[in-house]
Design a protein around this nucleic acid. Structure first.
Lengths: 157, 157
DNA sequence: GACATTAGTTAGCAATTCTAACTATTCTAC
DNA sequence: GTAGAATAGTTAGAATTGCTAACTAATGTC
């Protein structure tokens, strides 16, 4: 009914996949050691939440548990992540970055950020500010499902 | 150098993949007849640019020509798209939606838009307006070199 | 008419992510 | 304190996606 919210939804649907595609291409194509987007996001999550469980990451990234298990397998195989059984509850897995993992994450993050900043170079400070606001506005609207522990740290660096 | 643009880049990198994942899940999970995001975007592009060539779509969606060829194969196989040789240049392919294709596209679009609007329901009109502005600001920054394409395919129809 | 260029297809491979079925651990309730 | 439910994760198998390389067919250039 509201033409505005409709237009807005349409704009998101047009723009977000385009940005995403660009990010994906950038990640696969250049700066970083062949991290896929989910792999990168996983490293980022573990970096921010050391010792988190598999379920935590899976919820956050939006993958099923088996998929995340496989993804973690890959990262462990490349020596980027440590997977240990929790001593408190031995069903749970504790995930941490290795030194190499932290390094790769940092490098990937810096590389992608640099590329992104380049893309944003034409924006004025004011526009940049607005973009930032909008991202912080939208983020919580699309990470609802994981009702459990809401990580407030995601707002900050 | 500018902390602002850095924060902005980081926010995009945190938010866009999250939105994208939500869109992907929504598309696969519910309303629409099992269209993947690239399939949906392809239908949308063809709807907007009837008679476009394979290369046009591939450029726009960000896939290689072979990948797009396969994707179109699928859509043709499901009776959603017509693939005809151009009479002017018989190397080129002319793509059009079938009636079924148009219907599926419309239904998918409406379904996803409705879902998106639901997600955005908590935004005020003003916030909605800002989101819209930002999307329109960002879109051109992430759609690749093929900006000139929009003129080309309208010539032969 | 020979050769380069352009548009698209086919083949083969690797990665991603799903569902279903399984193991192992912990919790609940009698 | 043990039987059975619930929880955390893994494994297996399949479908989808998207890539590169090598090919065919049509067009343009000289």
């Amino acid at each position: 009914m509201n033409g505005l919210s409709q237009t807005c939804a349409r704009a998101i649907l047009d723009t977000v996949p385009a940005i995403m595609q660009a990010i994906r291409v950038e990640m696969r194509l250049e700066r970083m050691h062949e991290l896929s987007v989910p792999q990168f996001r996983t490293l980022a999550y573990i970096a921010r939440h050391p010792g988190c469980s598999l379920s935590d990451v899976a919820d956050f990234i939006g993958l099923t548990l088996p998929s995340m298990s496989v993804l973690i397998n890959g990262l462990v195989g490349e020596g980027l992540v440590l997977r240990e059984s929790s001593l408190i509850d031995r069903r749970r897995v504790m995930l941490n970055l290795t030194e190499a993992g932290a390094a790769v994450h940092t490098r990937a993050l810096n590389g992608t950020m640099a590329w992104l900043q380049e893309r944003l170079a034409s924006l004025s400070d004011e526009e940049c500010q607005t973009v930032l606001q909008v991202m912080e506005l939208l983020h919580p609207l699309f990470t609802v499902d994981c009702a459990g522990v809401t990580d407030r740290e995601t707002m900050h660096t």
